[in-house]
Write a protein that binds this DNA or RNA. Structure first.
Lengths: 248, 248
DNA sequence: GCGTAATATTCCGCAATACGCAATCGATTT
DNA sequence: AAATCGATTGCGTATTGCGGAATATTACGC
């Protein structure tokens, strides 16, 4: 039998699955668990992990495995949007210091937003998105704006394609309502996320454009819903505008 | 012929080499260049890159390749020293804001220090180490302290093992001098790096210990040598002590 | 401290996998 | 329009990685 999918190498798929599996766990993971999680034969998992360890992608801690420091290096070198992150960072930190809540930088990738960077406040209860993690467009403030700018047709397309899965009881799951809501957000130049992705979490988002008017990124504030304040909208918009200037 | 090295999987070695090669370049890299850099047959490189792209480890930009966003995610999940980074981050930012220079968090790995995190000041000229990058112990402030704490014998061992390669004309390349210098640093509880790693760059470093007295990390300030100030030593020591408290 | 169970690691023969050649496709240049 | 250069794909083959079983190591119960 030939390759099931040309453009796919078994070992690389398996390696990725293993890395993912390790990443899902907080503490070092045993071979057995990893083999079970990925459905690989322990012996196979072992050999792949050993090779990955050789290459620093994985490290051993006692008898278990954790992600290797080389991934830190590679992660920090992901050049994609590097300029963007660099330009945004000080603005994000300033905004975070001003309001005392988490500030996120996101970009669109397919039907999701990806968290590129964030600035975390120094307080016990805060909202924290992991860098590199994803969320569907229709349950995030920035994502809804992106849907809005893409136009009604594209938004409806998205709705049908994804089926608008609900995450909380506040998520939009109806195409008509979403389209309606999204165009409203677009007009006001910002969007709220009212516990649509996770109960108790509220966001405010704005878009960042380049000179040509294309969407470059989204900037958002995430906070426990009861701490969120109206006034932040203007500050967030200012930060967005400032970022556009710095990129232009 | 059997595997040259059991515990090594060809594809994974090659994948890692390709990722490294991509990371070395700033802009998207063409297949040809990657194949040349890694010595792989273009067709082989292509297939591996295609598989890596499927898995999000690599992304395409036009006709070239760049590191994929999944590496961001994996990099951010490197659990190793996560608590440390988390605890150190606010202290580092405060210190950076106080003195206006780069603050680094490092750990030892073998004969090198690895940069775990850093806080960058908002100014045009600044020293910037990439997260995940490495430097030999004997040309960094923190590294010299680590050598000191390891004891004279271990330090001499290190000297012979590595041959003390020089990076600038100020690097220590003589075992005797290094041992001497290092024990001096240890006594004073901090170390300078006077353009020993890179001409024009000066550092100050301190060590961070856990309750049991083991070295957990190093904290350092990097600045253009002519901007470096004596006063920073105490502030850095304070930050180190504060971090020890927070970890304890 | 010993026996036992549970994992981790190594060995090995087999065949599926990934390799490299060569041919095709596509873009860019002259 | 031809030619050149790089990216991509198909294909037969040898190598590589596979998984079962054997062995080592660790953890645990008694």
């Amino acid at each position: 039998m030939a390759n099931s999918d040309p453009g796919s190498i078994q070992v690389i798929d398996r390696l990725t699955a293993l890395l993912e599996a390790i990443a899902r766990h907080r503490d070092p993971v045993s071979l057995k668990v990893l083999a079970a999680d990925t459905g690989l034969h322990p012996s196979t998992a072992f050999r792949i992990l050993a090779a990955a360890t050789e290459n620093g992608l994985v490290a051993r801690e006692g008898t278990g495995y954790r992600l290797g420091i080389r991934l830190l290096q590679l992660g920090s070198r992901v050049a994609s949007h590097q300029d963007l992150r660099r330009a945004a960072r000080p603005l994000m930190e300033a905004l975070r210091d001003g309001i005392g809540e988490t500030v996120n930088l996101t970009v669109r990738q397919g039907d999701e937003v990806v968290y590129l960077d964030r600035a975390l406040p120094e307080r016990m209860m805060r909202v924290e998105q992991r860098i590199g993690s994803r969320a569907p467009l229709h349950v995030t403030a920035v994502g809804k704006l992106m849907l809005g700018e893409a136009g009604e047709a594209a938004c409806r397309d998205y709705a049908r394609r994804t089926g608008l899965p609900g995450y909380t009881r506040y998520s939009f799951t109806d195409e008509e309502e979403l389209v309606q809501h999204v165009s409203g957000c677009l007009r006001s130049g910002f969007a709220y996320d009212d516990e649509e992705a996770e109960t108790g979490v509220g966001c405010i988002g704005v878009l960042v454009h380049d000179d040509a008017g294309n969407i470059v990124a989204g900037l958002s504030i995430s906070a426990p819903i009861e701490r969120r304040r109206e006034e932040w909208v203007e500050r967030l918009k200012d930060a967005g505008r400032e970022l556009e200037l710095r990129l232009g």
